[in-house]
Write a protein that binds this DNA or RNA. Structure first.
Length: 363
DNA sequence: CATGCGTGGCA
DNA sequence: TTGCCAAGCAT
């Protein structure tokens, strides 16, 4: 089978794009700000997850200025539960930079976009083509899957040389003046038809020119790398009460896992260590306080991006030492009713929900 | 260039 | 239940 003709692909995609489409917020409004926020939320995240977050976000931060003027805590709170929290921190920083350097206007220049935190090649291409109508390609997971199949690319797409070739192919199917429709069609095709498993080739407008379809390689492409098994850790967390009936919340360091979120402090159990000893040690190391570990609150299983934990939470009584932020970014004594107003990770929300249900049962 | 970085849905 | 996967970016 000959190599598919990019122009023919473009024409097919444009025709296919003429069908009834779902109306997403970032399609109804071509506002660069909306596209920027939506595309950032959509990084590694599915549409149905993003939509409610996006709607809330746009009500709370309707433009660059509102976002720039918000506190990081407000921004993280709106992002709570969406994951990959560096995205929210980057949006916040970028908004301040856009306000300062570009008078609040999202730049329509590729180099300027790429220099902003959180904007890489995909998001820059998406903003330029979808919001500004420029003839720029996008290459995301959907487009990568479509192109590796249509062109029958058997090499690992994560290799830099293959990645460059895929960008060239993505650019080659852009018909001048039609980048927006082509890019959206490619991504729609990848999401709805050219799916990772069991692609619906009988409904695909490219099926008759697709190398993978012709050779029965649809399910094998794109080739996957070797998956490493994820480690599992046992972790403790303390709901530390003081004499006034307040609870100690700690803020995680601003970089790294769950950066900037608030949590019930604790940490990883070391080999041979009891849960209670772990908790006393961690609270001493991170906050320089002494506690008595009392009854358990909850046991929560949780999976992060690259490891899993079983989290044992205990009520604790603060018996000594004024907290100091040794291994945390900040700390605060708060009323139970105030905890919900802080951005927390999913695992800590599960703990909080158990506490709230106990409270409602009058325990 | 390889790795770190969340969460929820699905088979 | 477990593993796979999803509109990537930073370092």
């Amino acid at each position: 089978m000959s190599t598919p003709d990019p122009r023919q692909i473009a024409v097919r995609l444009l025709h296919w794009a003429g069908r009834a489409q779902r109306s997403f917020p970032w399609r109804t409004r071509r506002d660069p700000y909306v596209v920027w926020i939506a595309e950032t939320m959509l990084q590694q995240t599915q549409i149905q997850t993003v939509i409610p977050y996006l709607e809330r976000w746009l009500r709370r931060f309707p433009d660059v200025e509102a976002l720039a003027q918000a506190s990081l805590d407000d921004v993280l709170k709106m992002w709570e539960g969406l994951g990959y929290y560096a995205r929210a921190r980057h949006l916040h920083r970028a908004a301040r930079e856009i306000l300062q350097r570009y008078r609040g206007k999202i730049p329509d220049d590729k180099e300027a976009l790429l220099s902003l935190p959180g904007i890489g090649p995909y998001t820059a291409g998406a903003i330029l083509s979808l919001a500004f109508g420029k003839d720029e390609a996008v290459l995301d997971g959907n487009v990568r899957r479509v192109l590796t199949r249509v062109f029958g690319i058997e090499e690992d797409p994560r290799r830099a040389a293959v990645e460059r070739r895929l960008w060239q192919l993505a650019q080659s199917v852009i018909l001048p003046g039609h980048a927006r429709e082509i890019n959206e069609a490619l991504m729609d095709l990848g999401r709805e038809i050219c799916t990772p498993r069991s692609p619906r080739c009988h409904r695909c407008p490219l099926a008759d020119i697709c190398v993978a379809h012709a050779t029965g390689r649809e399910d094998a492409l794109p080739v996957k790398g070797t998956t490493r098994r994820v480690p599992h850790y046992t972790v403790t967390a303390g709901v530390v009460w003081n004499e006034e009936g307040k609870i100690l919340l700690a803020r995680r360091p601003l970089e790294g896992l769950l950066g900037g979120l608030w949590e019930f402090p604790g940490g990883k159990v070391e080999p041979g260590e009891s849960l209670e000893a772990c908790l006393r040690r961690e609270l001493k190391e991170e906050l320089d306080i002494d506690v008595v570990v009392e009854r358990p609150v909850a046991v929560v299983d949780h999976a992060y991006s690259h490891f899993k934990i079983t989290l044992h939470a205990f009520h604790c009584r603060h018996v000594g030492g004024t907290p100091r932020p040794l291994g945390v970014a900040d700390f605060r004594w708060v009323d139970v009713s105030e905890i919900r107003s802080y951005p927390l990770s999913r695992a800590d929300i599960k703990i909080l929900e158990v506490m709230e249900s106990e409270q409602n049962e009058g325990r």
